[in-house]
Design a protein around this nucleic acid. Sequence first.
DNA 1: GCTACGCTTTGATGTAGATCAAAAAATAAA
DNA 2: TTTATTTTTTGATCTACATCAAAGCGTAGC
Lengths: 189, 189
Amino acid sequence: MYEQLTHYLNSQIKVSEEELKIIHSFFRPLKLKKNELLVTHGQTSQRTFFVGKGCLRIFFINEEGQDATRYFAFEDQFATALVSFITGEPSEEFIQAAEDSELLYITHKDFYHLLEVIPQWEKFYRHYLEKAYVNNTKRLMSFLTQDATEKYRQLLNENPIIVRRLPNKMVASYLNISQETLSRLKSKV
Amino acid sequence: MYEQLTHYLNSQIKVSEEELKIIHSFFRPLKLKKNELLVTHGQTSQRTFFVGKGCLRIFFINEEGQDATRYFAFEDQFATALVSFITGEPSEEFIQAAEDSELLYITHKDFYHLLEVIPQWEKFYRHYLEKAYVNNTKRLMSFLTQDATEKYRQLLNENPIIVRRLPNKMVASYLNISQETLSRLKSKV
DNA sequence: GCTACGCTTTGATGTAGATCAAAAAATAAA
DNA sequence: TTTATTTTTTGATCTACATCAAAGCGTAGC
């Protein structure tokens, strides 16, 4: 799994063998069964996860107990409760294994430590933030301007893996529509 | 206006007099009349704006011509079509003066130049990205979990200036509800 | 193989908020 | 001031999608 991580890091930044070793030393492995929770509501000390195998789901829940999914991270992607990670405030986001998963994680403290000792890590974080921002803003646009059918069509085009690998319930939660509506869409579109 | 900028920068990062001069040299002033557009759809070369006086509105428009507002920047705030700024792709966002405004702006090219010559600028940009991300994600959460009344109540609590200074039309566009619905909410809430 | 529990589909009904339309009020222009 | 234009309010109607309910499938465990 550390090889996957190396590969991913090399695609983003230029780091020496030496630096790579340091980075690796802060990442620890973790196995999760489907549905296990990694971050619970209100938790403050955040970790950042790298998905080696499986899938993580980041979501929030409103007062009536309905959940809305913000992001799915599959193999070779990072995932974190980023708002809480940035602000240090208790998380309103949960992280859950959507499938049996194998992960690497780094603590918030160590992540910030890397920002100081590995100059390229600042760049890595910047790219991470930029991608997260672009992704979120596109989702925001989608919710503001598209109806259920359009959202589903776009998902099929841009992220078919979500539809293929995950149960309707989670896809519906990602699109912020009901399972019934998604089911009806599937039979029509 | 450059004093305002200095003041704002000092609140974010530590820069020498010397560095401040360099930074200032890349910002140019600009006056705008209410409703004037700064970024038009599909434009690629982005600028970043600092609001000295007035208000900028960042929004997108869907196929049916309805607009949805992503952000209002008032005095002492930065504004940019950030997705396009990051990706270099044509902008799907517009920027418009919501009031008569006085601005400073820096080009994308110069902004990236500063990233290279002023070490603290990387930190400034990181903070900017972090804030933009947190803000956007909170908006996303709000749209996914709140109804019209809740959204309006929260806006009154957290950003009353938007309701006080701007016409219903724009407030409604920010909340992504119709003007009529907003009007009815105002008389009830 | 059978039983049970979680998913998905299908149908009937309800509702928040959009849209349409027109009056009333506020601003700007003349 | 008077007139024109934009903004806000109020009422009637419509619609996309949620919710409720029940039946049909699939698959995991016994």
